[in-house]
C-alpha cells in the first residue's frame, strides 16, 4: 500500500512537471495554431540561464530564478518576432511554420551543447540540500511540493485570466477566429506578442522547476516538448485547462507502466499514448 501511495506521489510530481510546458504549448497553439517545437529550447533556457547565473555569476538562487524566467520569455518572444510572425504575415502554411520551428529547435539545441556541453548538469549543488518531508513512509521534497503547488496556481490563474480579464477574452477571441478579431479592432499582433511572452515565461519557469528536481541536459528538451504536446493532445489541443489535466493523465499512465512493467517501458508508454490519442481521440478527452 505504501508503495502505491509513493507511486501516486511520484505521478503527481511528474504530472506537475509536465504541466508547465503543456500549458505553455497549449496556450500558444490556441492562438498561433501550429506546433511550435521551438518551445523546447525555451523550456531548457530557463534551467540553463539559472545555471549560468548561479554557478558562473555566483548570484543567489532567487536572481537565477527571475533571470531564467525573463530570459526564457525573451527567447520565445525573439523567436516569434524573427521567425514566426514574418512567416505568418506572408501567409505561410502550418507546415512551413513547423519546419521553421524544427530548424529553430535543432539550431538552439546544438547551441546549448556548444555552450554548456552535452553532459548532465545539476541546478543545485548538494551543499544546499532542500528539505525532505516524511508522511509515514511517503517522502517528498520541498522543491517537489513547490512544483505541484505552483502548477496548480498557474492552472487556476490561467483559468481566471481567461474567463475574467480582458486579456483572456482577447486571447479567446483570437483563438476562435483571428480575422474576425482583427476586424473587431483588436491589435492581434500586439496581443499575440503578449501571449508569446507569457507562455514562454511559463515554459521557462517549468524548465527551472524540473531542473531543480531532476537536473538538465540538452537532450531533455525534445523529449519534454513531445510529452507536453501529448499531454495537450490528451486534454484537447488548444484548451489550456485540458493540457493541465492531460499532463497528469500522462504521468499516471507512465508511472503505472513503470510500476507494473518496468523502467524501460516509460518512453514507449508516452509515445503510445500519443499515437493512441491521435488515432482515437484527437479532440482530447475534454468536451470542447
Amino acid at each position: 500500500m505504501a508503495l502505491v501511495l509513493q507511486l501516486v506521489v511520484a505521478a503527481l510530481i511528474t504530472g506537475a512537471q509536465y504541466s508547465f510546458l503543456a500549458m505553455a504549448f497549449s496556450l500558444q497553439y490556441s492562438v498561433l495554431k501550429f506546433f511550435n517545437l521551438s518551445l523546447a529550447p525555451v523550456f531548457m533556457s530557463g534551467a540553463y540561464i539559472f545555471i549560468a547565473v548561479t554557478r558562473f555569476l555566483k548570484m543567489p538562487a532567487l536572481i537565477g530564478f527571475c533571470a531564467g524566467i525573463i530570459g526564457a520569455a525573451l527567447l520565445g518572444w525573439l523567436l516569434h518576432i524573427c521567425i514566426y510572425e514574418p512567416l505568418r504575415k506572408r501567409g505561410s502554411s502550418n507546415m512551413t511554420l513547423l519546419v521553421g520551428a524544427i530548424g529553430a529547435m535543432t539550431a538552439l539545441q546544438a547551441f546549448t551543447i556548444i555552450g554548456f556541453g552535452s553532459e548532465y548538469q545539476s541546478l543545485q549543488p548538494a551543499t544546499s540540500q532542500w528539505h525532505v518531508f516524511e508522511f509515514g513512509s511517503i517522502t517528498i521534497t520541498s522543491v517537489q511540493i513547490v512544483t505541484i503547488a505552483v502548477s496548480i496556481l498557474i492552472f487556476l490563474s490561467l483559468m481566471l485570466i481567461s474567463r475574467k480579464t480582458l486579456f483572456g477574452k482577447a486571447t479567446r477571441a483570437i483563438a476562435d477566429d483571428e480575422e474576425v478579431a482583427k476586424i473587431m479592432g483588436l491589435n492581434t499582433n500586439k496581443h499575440l506578442n503578449k501571449v508569446v511572452l507569457l507562455s514562454s515565461a511559463l515554459a521557462g519557469l517549468g524548465g527551472i522547476l524540473v531542473g531543480l528536481d531532476l537536473g538538465m541536459s540538452p537532450g531533455y528538451g525534445l523529449t519534454s516538448i513531445i510529452l507536453a504536446i501529448t499531454a495537450a493532445l490528451i486534454g484537447g489541443m488548444g484548451i489550456t485547462s485540458g493540457a493541465f489535466l492531460g499532463a497528469f493523465f500522462l504521468s499516471f499512465a507512465e508511472t503505472a507502466g513503470v510500476g507494473f512493467l518496468g523502467g524501460e517501458w516509460k518512453a514507449i508508454i508516452g509515445f503510445s499514448m500519443l499515437i493512441l490519442f491521435l488515432i482515437f481521440k484527437p479532440q482530447g478527452i475534454l468536451k470542447q
Binding site: A2, L3, Q6, G219, Y220, T255, G259, G263, E264
Partner: peptide
C-alpha cells in the same frame, strides 16, 4: 530488478518499488 533508459533522470518509480 529495475532498469531505466540511459537518458532518464527520474528514477522515482523504480526506487519506490525497490524500497518496497
Amino acid at each position: 530488478e529495475e532498469s531505466f533508459e540511459q537518458t532518464s533522470h527520474d528514477l522515482r518509480a523504480q526506487l519506490a518499488k525497490i524500497k518496497a
